[in-house]
Write a protein that binds this DNA or RNA. Structure first.
Ligand SMILES: [Mn+2]
Ligand SMILES: [Mn+2]
Ligand SMILES: [Mn+2]
Ligand SMILES: [Mn+2]
Lengths: 226, 226
DNA sequence: TTATTTTTTTAGTTTTGCCTAAAAATAATA
DNA sequence: TATTATTTTTAGGCAAAACTAAAAAAATAA
C-alpha cells in the first residue's frame, strides 16, 4: 500500500466509527483535504484491491480486509504517538503531524518491538485504544462529558477532537487525562456546563463537553485503583 | 525536499567521501538503483535548487548547502539506527532498510529529542560518526585492518561495508564492534590475513580486511578506558 | 589521429496522485 | 411531481519520478 492509500483507508475507518451508514465521497474529501474527484479516483483503486465496498454514487464501506488493514495503520499511529509523548517528551498536541508520517514506515517487526519497548500500552496520549498486532481493540468504557450526571466525580479519560487547537485549549483549562471533573450545574438552554476542577469552577460550552470523554463507572472505585 | 531528492543527495555525499573528483552519473545510478537517464533528470533538479554543482557530461559536486543538507539526512539515518539497536533490540544487520525510511521523517524537534533520548551518541551501530545538529562531525581516528601492523592488538571500531550480507558474515566470525583483533600473519601474495580473536585464529581475505576499521591509537590504553 | 566503445543526455512514455471543468445522478424543495 | 440544488463521477491535464530507445559527447584503443 502507498502512503496515500493508507491515509484514505485510515480515514474511512475513523469515519465509519461514528456511523453505520456508507461513507460519502465528500466526507472523505474533507478529511484527506483533497477534491471529491480525487477521492473518486482513490476509491476505485481501494475497491479494486478489495479493501472497500463501492457502488457508484452510494458511498463506501470497509471490507473485512480493509478493517484489519486500517486497524494496523491506527495501531502504528497510536504507538508512535505514545512513544513521542512517553519517551521523547512531546506534549499531546504536538504528536499528530509527526505520527501521521511515522505510521507509514513499513516493518511489522519495528512496530511490534516498539510496542514491547513501550510496555504494550493500551491507550495512546489522547485516550484512544491501541489495536494489538491482530487488530483486536479492547475498548475502554467511556462516555462524553456532555452526557454525564450532575454532582458526581468523573475522571477525564480521553478526547474526541485531537486537534492541537482543542488540546491547547484544554491545557489552558488545566484539563488533561486523569483530571477529576465534577459537573456543578447544567444550563438547560444551551447545555453549557459549570464544572469543578480541583476546587476551582469553570464554564465550558456543550461543544467542549461533547469532545471530552470521562469514565462511566463508579468514580470512587476508580480513584482507588488509579 | 522529497524523499527521492534526499536519497540522491545522501548518496552523492557518501560517494564524495571516497574521492575528491566529480561524482559520475553512472556511479549515482548504481547506488540509487535507477537508470542513468533518471539520474540526469534528478541531477538537474538538485542543481536548480543549488544543492549540487553540475556541468553537462562532467559529473557533480555538492555545494556548501548540499553538504549541510546531506549531513542532516545522515544524522537522521544514524540516530534512527542507534535507536533501533540500542532501544528496540535490533541487530546491526537489520537496521539499514528501516532507517532508510525513518530518515525522511521531517521534524527537527523529533530528531533533536531522539538525540537527547539516546544520550547524544557519537557513533552509530556500524561505527559511523553521527553529525550534530549543525552538521558538524567529530571523526574518530580509524584505519582499515588491511593497513594494520602485525603482532599488535587492535579494537574493531567500525565497518566500511554496512550490507547485511557482510555484517552477518562478521557475526559468524565473532567479529563485532569492540572485538580485539591481532594480526598473526600476512600472506604477501594476496594480503590474506591470519588473525587471532580471543585465542582462536581465523583467516580473512584482503576484501574483508579492507572493510573493517580498527583504532589506530595505542591499544593498551584503549583497553583500559573500554 | 581516427575508429570504436562507453558514458551521458535527450525525447518520448508510464504510473501515481492530485487538479479543474463539465456532465450525470441523487437529494431537497416548491 | 417538477424544478432546483447538491453530490458524485467523468474527461482531460499536470508534476514527480521512474522507464526505454536513440542521439550526442567523451574516453579509450587501434
Ligand atoms: Mn499518515
Ligand atoms: Mn492519538
Ligand atoms: Mn532513504
Ligand atoms: Mn550505520
Amino acid at each position: 500500500m502507498t502512503i496515500s492509500e493508507e491515509n484514505y483507508l485510515k480515514i474511512i475507518y475513523l469515519l465509519s466509527e461514528n456511523t453505520s451508514k456508507e461513507i460519502s465521497t465528500n466526507a472523505i474529501a474533507d478529511m484527506v483535504k483533497a477534491k471529491a474527484s480525487s477521492v473518486t479516483d482513490m476509491i476505485k483503486k481501494l475497491a479494486n484491491k478489495e479493501l472497500i465496498n463501492y457502488e457508484k454514487y452510494q458511498g463506501v464501506t470497509l471490507t473485512e480486509l480493509g478493517i484489519y488493514k486500517a486497524k494496523i495503520i491506527i495501531r502504528r499511529q497510536r504507538l508512535w504517538e505514545t512513544f513521542l509523548v512517553d519517551k521523547l517528551n512531546f506534549s499531546w498536541d504536538e504528536v499528530h503531524e509527526i505520527a501521521e508520517e511515522l505510521e507509514h514506515i513499513k516493518s511489522e517487526k519495528l512496530i511490534n518491538h516498539l510496542d514491547a519497548f513501550l510496555n504494550f500500552p493500551r491507550l495512546d496520549p489522547h485516550g484512544d485504544s491501541i489495536p494489538n498486532q491482530d487488530g483486536i481493540i479492547y475498548e475502554s468504557q467511556k462516555v462524553l462529558l456532555s452526557e454525564a450526571d450532575l454532582n458526581k466525580k468523573y475522571i477525564c479519560v480521553g478526547v474526541k477532537d485531537t486537534s492541537s487547537h482543542f488540546l491547547k485549549f484544554l491545557d489552558n483549562k488545566k484539563i488533561t487525562i486523569g483530571t477529576i471533573i465534577e459537573i456543578i450545574e447544567r444550563e438547560n438552554y444551551d447545555n453549557t456546563l459549570i464544572i469543578k476542577i480541583e476546587n476551582t469552577t469553570t464554564t465550558i460550552s456543550n461543544k467542549i463537553a461533547s469532545n471530552l470523554y470521562i469514565n462511566n463507572t463508579d468514580p470512587n472505585q476508580l480513584l482507588i485503583t488509579n
